Computed example of a mutant assay.
Amino acid sequence: MDVQTLRQRLQHEPETLSHKLQASHFVAAQQKLDTALTWQAMADDHVIVTPDSSFYPPLLHEIDDAPTVLFCKGDVQSLLRPAIAIVGSRDASRNGLQQAYDFASQLAAAGLTIVSGMAAGIDGAAHQGCLAAGGNTLGILGTGVEQIYPRRHKQLFIDVRQQGCLVSEFWPDVKPFAGNFPKRNRIISGIALGTLLIEARRKSGSLITARLASEQGREVFAIPGNVLAGDHQGCHDLIKNGAKLVEDLADIIEELPPLLQAHLESLAIEPHLANQDSSELPFSRLLASVGYETTALDVVVEHSGITLDLVLEQLLELELQGWVAAVPGGYVRLKRS
């Protein structure tokens, strides 16, 4: 068929073609709707939440590009509780993982829901810390809720579903796609009162979440680290540009809305957590010789002035008590008091 004949046919059949396209789009939309409703009927804790639903997170209503649908797997009541997001490096250090776990545990114990992206590293540690404290946690996914990614988090997906909620704006069977993960970050920041960054490098994906939180008018918190290490440069940049430097739980609590702050303080949360006197710490002389960055064994021996045999014995005891951890190249200290 030549071009002129084709043009004439299209000119005489525009209405018919338009109707066909509309019908085709309607059928496709109806099929997607049927798929969603079938998924929802599969289990009692499968819930589709839309902006007019009573379970739609209140703070999400305030962002410009709020999701029009959320597929939720778990306790949808978790979407309504005040929350803090914790994000950071996928390739986090032992110290960074411990910080994420500890802050999530403390925030959860204070009654806050912990939000993160179910990724490896800081995300996973934050979810686990919250679960260990008996708190509620929201896993905001860059896949459909029926996809477990990364695969190593299979048990974590099960636990979050039981003690919180898995949430995605993507259809349940959508597989991992690189472009969807930055897109979900606006939900992580948008659903929370503030976002805490731990071990974020420059150009880190978690900095996208921090930028979105700032644009959404939410608090941005960052934990500083060694200025010589590249793991913390993104956090340092945030602090330079106005993010709240965080050393302990009180640094976060005091930035929350007054009514919520008053409620949390009524739970006997101290304004600032006082450090114990070093004399009360186990093996305080040795412990003072182990840094928060990797400290070589010979450095620990030299700084402590203790014999190697006794250093190894005491380090083992400190490791069993959770004060230090053995890492490639030496030991790191995990907590201050």
Rank of each mutant, 00 (worst) to 15 (best):
K154H: 14
A126C: 05
I140G: 01
I148S: 03
M118V: 05
V115N: 02
Q98S: 14
S105K: 13
H127T: 04
L131M: 10
D123Q: 06
V145K: 05
A132D: 15
V115G: 05
C130L: 11
L141A: 05
S116A: 12
V145S: 04
M118W: 06
T137A: 15
T143D: 00
G139L: 04
R151P: 01
G142L: 01
S105Q: 13
Y149M: 02
T143L: 00
H153L: 01
Y101P: 03
Q106Y: 07
L97K: 14
Q106F: 09
T113R: 02
Q106W: 06
H153R: 02
Y149D: 03
L97M: 13
Y101S: 14
Q128D: 13
L107E: 07
Q106H: 13
M118G: 02
H153C: 03
K154Q: 15
L141K: 02
A125P: 04
A110L: 10
A108G: 15
L138Q: 13
G96T: 07
T113A: 11
H127Q: 10
S105V: 04
A120G: 09
N136D: 14
I114R: 03
G144I: 00
A125T: 04
I140A: 02
A110I: 02
A120K: 13
G117I: 08
I140W: 01
G96S: 02
Q147G: 00
P150C: 08
N95W: 13
G96H: 07
I122R: 02
K154V: 14
L97V: 09
Q128V: 08
R152A: 15
D123M: 04
Y101M: 13
A133V: 10
T113F: 00
A109N: 14
L97N: 09
F103E: 02
D123T: 01
E146F: 08
G129T: 05
G117Q: 09
G121T: 05
I140T: 11
L138W: 06
Q106E: 15
G144M: 06
A133T: 07
A126G: 04
V145N: 04
L112P: 09
V115F: 01
G142M: 07
G111H: 06
R151M: 12
G142K: 02
Y149R: 10
R152D: 10
D123V: 00
K154N: 13
L138N: 12
S105R: 12
Q147H: 10
G117A: 07
N95S: 14
G129Q: 07
G96M: 03
Q106L: 14
Q99K: 11
E146W: 01
G111T: 05
G124I: 02
A108T: 06
